Structure formats: C-alpha cells, structure tokens
Amino acid sequence: MRVGIVCPYSFDVPGGVQFHIRDLAETLIGLGHDVSVLAPAHEEDGLPPYVVSAGRAVPVPYNGSVARLAFGPISATRVRRWLTAGDFDVLHVHEPVTPSLSLLAVLSSRGPVVATFHTAMTRSRAMSVAQGMLQLVLERITARIAVSALARRVQVEHLDGGAVEIPNGVSVAAFADASPLPGWPGVSGPGRGGAIGFLGRFGEPRKGFGVLAAAFAALAARRPGLRLLVAGPGEAEEALALIPAALHGQVTLLGMVPEARKARMLRSVDLYVAPNTGGESFGMILTEAMAAGTPVVASDLDAFRRVLVGGAAGALFRTGDPVALAALLDDLLDHPARRAQLAARGRAAVAAYDWPVVAARVLEVYATAIECSTGRVVPAASEEQIRHNT
C-alpha cells in the first residue's frame, strides 16, 4: 500500500505528534508498505529518507504551547506537488483543523482521507474564525481516528462526528531493553535518597516542572541523597532557578536527548514523574516510562488516569499540589515492593500500546477508508480537470 502521511508541525522539532508520525511511518515501512511523510522542517539535513520537507514553518501560540506551522500559497503548492508525485492509496493527515499542512492537504486532495486528532482542545480563536473552511475540511475526511477518549469527545461534541479511538503507540522493546546511565539510579532506601526523573519542556508552565521542583526541594530536606534527573529542551538556568541553590548539585540536566538516550534516562530513575497541570489528551511519556519498567507518578489528569488504568498502573497525585506529590514520592521511595508492583502493572498495561498492535488497527481504518472511496488520492484540480475533459 502507498501511504501519504502529513505532519502539521516541524518534523525537526521534538513533539508528541512528530514522534507518533515517525514511529507509525517506520512501523508501516517495516511491514512492507511504501510510506512518504510531508512535513515542515527548519533544517532538512538529518531528516529520515521517507520525509519530504515542505519548507520552514513559523512559531505560533497554539493550545497552550508553541507550534511551528506552515500555511499559505507556497505551502499549498508544495502539498499539491507531493500529492501528484505520491500516487497514494490513502492519505493520512494529523491534526487537520490546525492551520498548517494537514488542512491544506485535505483541501487539495480527493480520495480516501484518514485524519488523526491528537488534542482535546474544544475551541480556539483560529477554529472560530475559520469555521466555514473547517466544515469543508471535515466533509472531505473519509475516516477519523482519535488518540484518546478526550480527543474523541471533541469529535462528538464539537466537530459533528465520531472517531475510532486508537492510542499513541510505543516501541516497547526499545525501552525495555535499554540500560541505565552510568551511576544511576544510585542508593535508595528508607530516608536515604532515591532518583526521580522528568522529561519535557520545563519552561512550559503546563508541563508542571515548577510543581516537581517545589516537591523536590521539600523532599530533599528529609532525604539528603535524593537526586533529580531532567531531560528536555530549555536553558539550564531556567530550570535551576526553580530549585534552591543548595540543591543544584543534586540535579542533573541532560538537555535534549535522542530516543536511545531517552530510554536509558527512563531506566535510570526509581520513579518517573509527570506533574503536568493540563492540556494533555493522552500521555505518551507515561507509556514510554511504563515500557521501560519504571514506575510512574502522575498528576490526576483525566488523560493520565485513563493511561494508568485509574491508578492501578501508576500512582496519581492531586494536580498542581507539590505537597501531595512530595508525600507520595517519599512513600514510594521508602517501599521498593510497591514500586515493583506498579512497574509490573505498567508493563502489562503498555502491551496494548505496542506499535505493531497499534499499526494493525490503523491499517484496518485505511482499508475501510479505501473501501468507502472511489479511486486513489489525487490532487483536487486533477479531478476537476478529468471531469472537464469528460
């Protein structure tokens, strides 16, 4: 099968949607399918061979974060060229209501179109302004996928339709087989220390690093050997500013990490902490930590609660409460048997998110979309020309 996948965000900037598309594409290629991904990219060097660059994107505040998007006549022309060259059996766009390449691809094509919705955002200024165009986009989508129940709820309540719920995938073996970083996690035990980890954009308030920093400072007072391992983009000074200077020696900042090092980072801590305060529709980092066999502590967001099976596959604390987080971490660090139980339940739960399982479900949606359509994916103008000539 020839599959065209469209990413709305810069492929060379880390993000959950980009990782999802990368892993899906590589899984499908491994299964023998011919896959091409169209995406914006600031730097084309280093892109995977299956990615076609649509040029640079611009940073735009979007859904409580900053997304790098590509839109306009130049981007539309590049989309059409890619569609013409691709001769795809199915077009798979991600976040089609975001003003970027996915929206352009839907408007520029005819044929079987599958759309995946990642966010649980119910409304935005851009969606309100472009309501007419949005309706046209939705009408041209053959089948919809939502990565979570929250994202699916948006389809039902705000976008006039349902969606098949298929979660984000995770390469379970890649995380399970990773080895810890040298010297980690170190000494742990009742009152002795322990290692906790965080991965994400610590400068982005909704990621909750400030909550974790406050909990770490309080907990370190009674656990002198406590260490914090942090990975993700941002300036070190910005992260350390949230932590008392006396504790800076107990904090290790890895910066941006490639996938292999991410897996090692997750294997290097006694507990992985996801202190996010909102804006999450799934929780990919939770499944990655679960795949690594690391027990998870997460804020009690609905999306996280669902991934962690209501708290059975990971411990939950009151969102935004550093005191509650510190108390939970203290208790878990003192009880290795409970940590082991959480890790075992996490490994069992994450099996449903393994990429081969997820990709098989996506292929079923592709087959349904193709069956419901006539012909292959073609640029819209090509179809209009055919009608004119006939």
Rank of each mutant, 00 (worst) to 15 (best):
G86E: 00
E364F: 02
R361F: 01
Y353C: 13
M284K: 15
V307Y: 04
R201F: 06
S36H: 12
A120I: 06
S109I: 06
V377L: 01
P224C: 06
G208S: 03
V154N: 06
S102I: 02
L91V: 01
A352P: 10
V211G: 02
G283I: 11
G193L: 10
A326M: 01
A337G: 09
L138K: 04
P8C: 14
V172S: 01
I370F: 10
S108A: 07
P112K: 00
A369I: 08
A236E: 14
A143H: 09
G210Q: 06
G30R: 00
R318F: 14
H335R: 08
V323S: 14
V187Y: 12
D331S: 14
V357K: 12
P14G: 08
G200R: 02
V377R: 09
G186K: 04
T84E: 10
P336M: 05
L47A: 00
L136G: 15
I166F: 02
G203R: 13
G278P: 11
V257G: 06
D34A: 09
Y50H: 04
T390E: 13
G16T: 07
L271A: 08
P48V: 01
S102N: 06
S268P: 14
P96G: 01
P244Q: 04
V129Q: 06
I285W: 12
V377S: 01
L212C: 03
T142L: 11
G46R: 02
A218D: 06
P205W: 05
F202E: 02
V273R: 00
P190W: 00
A149E: 05
F88Y: 11
A25Y: 00
T122M: 11
D331P: 14
I21W: 10
E139N: 03
I21L: 07
V37L: 05
R152E: 12
P14M: 15
V147T: 10
A291T: 01
E95H: 07
V307A: 08
G346T: 13
G183H: 03
V13T: 14
R68S: 12
G234D: 04
R153G: 09
D45V: 12
R80W: 09
G203Y: 13
G194Q: 14
L199W: 03
V6A: 02
I196Y: 13
G234F: 10
G4T: 09
Y366P: 02
L316G: 11
G46M: 05
L247H: 13
W82H: 15
A274M: 06
D354F: 03
T77E: 14
Y62I: 15
L219N: 15
A115D: 12
V113D: 00
L136P: 10
E165F: 09
D300Q: 07
L181F: 13
V97Q: 14
